[in-house]
Design a protein around this nucleic acid. Sequence first.
RNA 1: GGUCCAGUAACUCAGUGGUAGAGUAUCUGCCUUUUAAGCAGAGAGUCGACGGUUCAAGUCCGUCCUGGAUCACCA
Length: 497
Amino acid sequence: MAENQFIKLRKEKLARIRALGIDPYPVQSARSHKIAEILADPDGSVENATIFTLAGRLVAMRRQGKIGFGNIEDDSGRIQLYVSKAELGEENYELFKLCDAGDFVQATGTAFFTQTGEYSLRCTCIKLLSKNIRPLPTVKEKIENGRAIRYDEFSDIELRYRKRYLDLLLNPEHRKVFATRSRIVSAIRKFLDSRDYIEVETPILQSLYGGANARPFITHHNTLDVDLYLRIAVELYLKRLIVGGFERVYEIGKNFRNEGMDRTHNPEFTMLESYEAYSDLQGMMDLVEALVKHLATDVIGKDIYRYHGHEVNLAGTWRRAAMADLVQEATGIDVMEATVDKLTAFCTEHELEIPAGSAKGKLIAIIYERFVEHTLIQPTFVCDFPKEISPLAKAKPGNPLLADRFELIIAGGEFANAFSELNDPLDQRERLEAQARLRALGDDEANVVDEDFLEALEYGMPPMGGQGIGIDRLVMLLTENDSIKEVILFPQMKPGN
RNA sequence: GGUCCAGUAACUCAGUGGUAGAGUAUCUGCCUUUUAAGCAGAGAGUCGACGGUUCAAGUCCGUCCUGGAUCACCA
């Protein structure tokens, strides 16, 4: 294979380097400055004749007879190296000639400007820190009118996801997305911590799964010889913690759902869930709105985002609307008054699939999802969900058919889900048993009855509000990426060849 | 899962049924301030896989694999 020819040549270079008595993978490196530091104050550096020892990856080589140029990059920046045989000496220059783009090197020297005015490091010594034996894909860049034009960009989507390290290395703007993701998650923690929440970790391996409608992954514990599920949500465990006396808890972690994958779904994804005793739906609405606005304004620094072809404005007061009103607006049907037969007929007419055992509320939700959800572009709290599709939410005060629940919809997609949490143990048991009946009818995403959770409720749980936000989708919005794979470092891919 | 698009050198891509191409990268030579360095030369391919049609297939047909877009379902 041609690949082996490249590698074979590099291995021969390795041997030549070793023959010079040089260890191509030394233990020691001794960096005195990061590249950003030498870049920070060029004039001062020149005057002071400071000696810099930089370390990083050689990203370009331009050899030219008895001199040469290279570019070295660390996580703070990139600078040009000027290397000459006269200043390095015969032996060290011999090593430089054996260096390739992709190698890690340490370069010692002083700052100066080249004839063409580029601020560079005039090297007095080059040390090899790690030899590359597989050539990096070639990406060249030209700066024109202050803008970088990239040639032969590493842009194949499949390769970028499968070889993410190359994507990060060769496409700095993608590295930036993940740095931004980190800042967002960090800001979420600070936001909640400052409101007296504590962060907790609950089991990923569970003998019963719950807290959402989804199919789980199943795994096996050898010593116990039992099958375990990977969690689909953390809800039931966080509620147990509120029973246990914590008043405000949150968890940021991976959930796993054994379902399809597309540009907004990855089998493992990151969720934030938080629960606050003595709060309620209104409290959660305020919390979610304040949190998302804080991230947009203070972390990213803007209110308007382009997302899935829409312009989304996160500023201003977010719309709040009842699901029934939205459905009526879109279809003309007064769903609160309509009979089950009428709704069923409507669904059938529009070829909407009706799962076995669907009651009126489920039908309303089906119509909502088909005709309304994707039309809500600007942030909208959709309230008054049907109770029977909200088995963990309290009934809305004054209307036993509705749940005290909202979903936050932005650009036609769900960003948050929250309710006044159900704390009546007998009601909760009935609701979960209703779910079990749906399950028996073939709904394999319905909740299972968790006796230990019900027992915890029987000991008493304070009234509270809880909410969940899909972090990946939030990062997609805030970094203006339309595919979840762009915000997950190693997205799920089918095994390749 | 349905439909559509794509897969050719390490990277980015041309390729009209008739000898497999370019730029970059790599290798060799020259070059003491270059920067998409330059000049000269060389090597590099299971054209995603398998089957079929044809005198002849990267190209046409079929099946499959992988990715993307879109629709359906889920956050």
